[in-house]
Design a protein around this nucleic acid. Structure first.
Lengths: 209, 209
DNA sequence: GATACAATTAAACAACTGTTTAATTTTTTT
DNA sequence: AAAAAAATTAAACAGTTGTTTAATTGTATC
């Protein structure tokens, strides 16, 4: 599916509002007003509010797919280097698309069996397969341990980075980093989160190092 | 503040619905119906929907405060033992009160400067102080490293355990644990998450071991 | 048993909800 | 330039929203 300029504008405005106020607390009129389009255009283009968020999910997920899978087929990299690359890419991505990932986290927590839950599950399965592949390679090359809980490692990576991002203002205050610009601070935080997860992965995957 | 039976019933029903459908997508009529009380009773007791969720937060937070702080003053425990105890207590708590912690996670992510954000910040500050105290003790006794990022460690613990809980069905399917009862499975998951975080803490805090 | 206060109710309130309609304008195709 | 298709609009739709009202019932206090 490809979207024209106005459709993208609506989706990105909705993304921001959903992330800031929650899906249920955001009205289509708010979206229309902020996006500067007529109210009826949302139904015209997307059909409904529910289908709008589904379109947003498709729109954001379509760009993700190819990035990693090709990068990780690189034969010149060791399994651990691939894991490190994966962590860097993931943290970069959720920082860059923090609005979108906020929405994903909230939707993930709701019990309803929506279209979005299905799309999320598919993405998780793809990501797990990539991870599985790297780890299997590391195990074959006797570099990684045999008893690795992949899903748990994903919880560490996804959970830690999400929380660190949501908790960023607390981090900033606690470490007295107010003198940094927003960009400088985010760069620093990103780096520290990445290093933290890499360290955990190394300790858990390899025979200590 | 103390609440009568009916007030508690309303708060706990609201808690379940907020966690399952989100705050914005839950109507006061749904809450009244499910709780078996008249619609007007919610305004009568709490004033508004917003104040209802604030009351819920107070209600749930009031029970938490004392548990840890006393346990951790125990002189017969080493700093590492205290950290392990803290992890166990935390994971236990969010599993037992998973509805409530779902709500906290979602509220934490919203940009609005609500009463709840303030309450959450205060709780975080108290928790950080407790953690700070244990770690300082470990550093004085030369058992813990000097360069420890407390806030990052909290992100690891909070983020990982939240995500593991939300992701539990994926974990169950991936590890083919469908034959376990819900209780058995949750007990297993809880144990694994606890062990995972303990291992990370040990590796990051001590001089390897 | 009267008085005062708390609890409960159904009904009403105005504002807002997502979505549709039907008319009009703009753009594209022929 | 005519015809067809797409985009845009203001207005209306019926249903839901959170909250309040005013009347009634229940329960203590004197």
């Amino acid at each position: 599916m490809s979207y024209n300029e106005k459709q993208v504008q609506i989706m990105e405005t909705a993304e921001e509002l959903f992330a800031m106020n929650g899906f249920g607390s955001t009205s289509v009129r708010q979206i229309a007003d902020k996006a500067g389009v007529n109210l009826a255009m949302i139904s015209y283009y997307f059909g409904s509010k529910e289908k709008l968020i589904e379109a947003l999910v498709d729109y954001r997920m379509s760009h993700v797919r190819l990035t990693l899978e090709n990068l990780l087929k690189d034969d010149s990299l060791t399994p651990l280097q691939k894991m490190n690359l994966l962590v860097t890419e993931y943290v970069d991505r959720i920082v860059q698309r923090h609005h979108f990932y906020k929405i994903m986290v909230t939707e993930h927590m709701l019990d309803k069996n929506s279209e979005i839950t299905v799309k999320l599950l598919k993405m998780k399965q793809r990501n797990t397969e990539v991870l599985q592949q790297i780890i299997s390679e590391g195990q074959q090359k006797k570099m990684f341990r045999k008893d690795v809980d992949i899903v748990m490692l994903m919880s560490v990576m996804v959970g830690t980075s999400n929380h660190a991002l949501v908790n960023r203002e607390f981090y900033r205050t606690y470490h007295k980093l107010e003198h940094l610009s927003e960009d400088e601070f985010i760069t620093l935080l990103k780096q520290r989160v990445t290093e933290e997860i890499k360290a955990i992965f190394k300790a858990q995957l390899t025979y200590e190092g």
